[in-house]
Computed example of a mutant assay.
Amino acid sequence: MGLLLGTGKFLKNGCKNLYFFNRIDATEQLYKSGKIQYILISGDNSTKNYSEPEDMQAELIKRGIPADKIVLDFAGFRTLDSVVRAKEIFGQNSFIIISQKFHNERAIFLARKYGIEAYGFNAKDVNKYFGFKTKVREYFARAKVFVDFLLGVEPKFGGEKVEIS
């Protein structure tokens, strides 16, 4: 199982989001090499016209990945939600997390804290100037992980279990 962490297809200025396309490239590579058989796409779907999971699914299908090998999690609003829901809702105790290195480091830390055997597959990163804002945001996200543990924060949404055969 590959857990593809969501991000928007486009930036606020309308340009393509290279984080998105690099994660799609990495997922395609893993699937076509036989390293993963299913893809769980977890991301934000908080407004009517914005769905990270559906945008990523559409892009993967365009690249030849069968729709029946893709499962969508629309409640992956944060990395914590995506990782814990992969275990609690989708029944996965071991998976490969697909994102950029800086994001995978935090996601794997979270997974292991929740008893999940997780590994990261690092998608290509972006130019350091292009990704400056994201890197600054990551420093705060890493600190928030510890605050969340201290406060016992759980995923925002639960839900019925979904079996992935």
Rank of each mutant, 00 (worst) to 15 (best):
S33P: 02
N13A: 07
D148R: 03
E52S: 09
F130K: 08
K35W: 03
I65G: 06
N22R: 14
M56P: 03
L18M: 11
Q100G: 07
E105G: 00
I164E: 11
R137K: 12
F140T: 13
V136G: 03
S82I: 02
A67T: 12
F77H: 14
K87W: 00
A86T: 02
R137P: 00
Y50P: 00
Q92C: 04
Q37Y: 05
K16M: 07
K101Y: 07
M56I: 09
L5P: 02
K133L: 10
L80S: 08
R63M: 06
L110K: 05
R112W: 03
H103F: 05
A107G: 09
Y129W: 13
S82L: 02
A123H: 07
K113G: 09
K62S: 15
C15I: 00
I97Y: 02
V84W: 02
R78K: 15
N93Y: 00
D68I: 03
K9F: 04
T134R: 05
G64I: 09
Y50Q: 08
T27Q: 05
N122I: 05
L18K: 10
T79K: 07
A143F: 14
L60Q: 09
L3N: 02
T27V: 10
K135F: 11
D148Q: 13
K48Y: 10
D148L: 01
H103A: 04
K156I: 12
K12M: 09
A111G: 15
K35T: 05
L151G: 01
F74P: 04
I70T: 12
F146Q: 05
F149R: 10
R78V: 01
A26V: 04
Q37R: 14
L5V: 12
E138D: 15
M1V: 01
K9A: 13
V153C: 01
D81S: 08
E138P: 02
P66N: 11
L3G: 00
G91T: 04
E105Y: 08
L40W: 01
R142P: 03
V147L: 14
E59S: 15
M56F: 05
M56T: 08
C15Y: 12
N104D: 08
G115R: 04
P66T: 10
Y19T: 09
K48E: 15
Y114M: 03
R85N: 06
P66R: 07
